[in-house]
C-alpha cells in the first residue's frame, strides 16, 4: 500500500520517544516559546512546532479569534516532543498560543484551513470511479467469456 516510505520514521519515533517520554528539566525564570506552523492546510491537519524542548504541564489554547477573547479548546502539550500534529479541522482560521503563566509565554500563530474545492475532489473521485468501473466490468465480462479456455494439452498434476 501507499506511504510505505513513512513507516521507517513511525516505528522509530514511537518507541524511542513516546513510551519513554522524560519530563524536561524545570526552569526557574520565565521562558518565551516560539510556536510555528504552516500558514495554510488543505487537508485539515497540520504540525505545530516549538523552538525548544517543552516544559511539563504546558497548555495549548485554541481560538477562532486573534485576541483569544473566546477560547475554543485547551489541551496539554503531549510528551516532550517539540512537534505535535493537530487534525480534523474544518474550513476557517484558527489561532494557537501557549496558555500564559508566570513561567511561560509564547507568540500567537494562525493557521488557515481551506479544504480542496469540492469540484476538484469530485472530479478526481468520479474519474477514478469511472476507470475503476471500466476495469471491474472488463475483468468480470472477460472472465466469464473465457471461463473455459485452457492451454493445457497435458494435465499437469
Amino acid at each position: 500500500m501507499p506511504k510505505r516510505y513513512g513507516f521507517i520514521s513511525q516505528i522509530a519515533l514511537l518507541f524511542l520517544i513516546t513510551l519513554l517520554a522524560r519530563p524536561a528539566g524545570a526552569q526557574d525564570s520565565k521562558t518565551h516559546f516560539t510556536l510555528s506552523a504552516q500558514e495554510t492546510s488543505r487537508e485539515g491537519y497540520f504540525v505545530v512546532e516549538l523552538d525548544q524542548v517543552p516544559q511539563p504541564g504546558m497548555i495549548v489554547q485554541q481560538s477562532t479569534v486573534r485576541d483569544f477573547s473566546e477560547i475554543s479548546t485547551e489541551f496539554a502539550w503531549f510528551g516532550d516532543f517539540e512537534k505535535m500534529t493537530l487534525t480534523g479541522f474544518s474550513d476557517g482560521d484558527y489561532y494557537f498560543r501557549l496558555k500564559p503563566s508566570a513561567e511561560i509565554s509564547s507568540n500567537v500563530i494562525s493557521v488557515k484551513v481551506k479544504h480542496y474545492p469540492r469540484w476538484q475532489a469530485y472530479s478526481l473521485f468520479f474519474t477514478g470511479l469511472a476507470l475503476f468501473t471500466l476495469l471491474v466490468v472488463m475483468i468480470v465480462t472477460l472472465h466469464r467469456r473465457h471461463r473455459h479456455d485452457s492451454t493445457a494439452k497435458v494435465k499437469h498434476d
Binding site: G44, G88, Y116, Q120, A121, L131
Partner: peptide
Amino acid sequence: NHPQLLDLLFPAAIMFLFNNIFFG
C-alpha cells in the same frame, strides 16, 4: 473538537481514494 474527521464528504480523502486503490 475534530469534526472534519467524521465528515463523509472530506474533500482530500475523496480525492485520494481512487489513486490509492489503483496503486494497490
